[in-house]
């Protein structure tokens, strides 16, 4: 058994396919590439393929991660190129390396995610926008209303502790990009769409929620109180 770490993109129309659909897309891609992956034993065998953190439908990513167990040892580059030949447009493997040391699963490592959030605004000076963002962050608590899908109830949560960074990184020709680093994973999770909803409500800036484009750019784990990007995992 050989375990590989993959970094890949999920962009363009591929942002509209769900986490489960992405899993079967990969399973089939491995079969088309003639790379045998391992399956769990038992009643209904499933492929040993896991993606670090699901991406909501509609959000793109330049940097997703998954680990896959493969029957035969191969060069990472060979796996990468064979997969890229058979993957749909929008999903590209950027990196594939064997993971020698087995620690926790990728999913258990995830602590933070970075997002580039772009939207169209008009007639607002850059300083005003920066000030608005600062005001938003200076709140002691930011109460967001979370809809619980399963129970159909509404829950109020303070999302302020989940925001590590939220700053304007680009603003030109009426398109603003905010880079946000927010808590992600099983030890606390903030959805970027909920974050933007709170921002829009508190700031009085007119932004059409349907026009916001969100791109995940990195996942992080924490080691010795430091955020470390997944791209540095060996």
């Amino acid at each position: 058994m050989y375990k590989y770490l993959f970094q890949f993109t999920k962009t363009d129309y591929m942002k509209f396919i769900s986490h489960l659909d992405l899993m079967s897309t990969f399973e089939r891609a491995f079969r088309r590439a003639d790379i045998k992956i391992l399956y769990s034993q038992g009643f209904s065998p499933h492929p040993k393929l896991s993606i670090a953190h699901p991406l909501s439908v509609g959000i793109s990513s330049t940097s997703e991660y998954m680990e896959v167990e493969i029957e035969e040892r191969k060069e990472g580059l060979e796996i990468l190129s064979r997969l890229n030949d058979v993957l749909p447009e929008g999903i590209r493997i950027l990196n594939c390396k064997e993971m020698i040391e087995k620690k926790k699963s990728l999913a258990a490592l995830v602590e933070y995610a970075a997002y580039d959030i772009s939207f169209h605004i008009e007639d607002i000076e850059q300083d005003v926008l920066i000030k608005t963002i600062e005001d938003f962050l200076s709140e002691i608590e930011i109460i967001a209303i979370k809809k619980q899908m399963k129970t159909h109830t509404i829950k109020q949560v303070d999302i302020r502790p989940f925001i590590d960074a939220f700053e304007l990184t680009k603003y030109s020709q009426g398109v603003a990009t905010i880079t946000a680093i927010i808590k992600t994973g099983s030890n606390g999770n903030l959805n970027p769409e909920l974050l933007m909803q709170s921002f829009i409500e508190s700031s009085e800036i007119k932004i059409d929620p349907n026009e916001i484009k969100i791109m995940r750019t990195e996942l992080y784990f924490v080691k010795e109180n430091k955020r470390i990007p997944f791209s540095s995992i060996n």
């Binding site: 129309y13 509209f16 439908v57 509609g58 058979v86 749909p88």
Partner: peptide, 18 residues
């Protein structure tokens, strides 16, 4: 692209399958 986020199962309308 603007309307797809609003509909159920947007992948019904995107094409681009293998």
């Amino acid at each position: 692209e603007k309307i797809l986020p609003k509909v159920e199962k947007p992948a019904r309308y995107i094409g681009g399958e293998i």
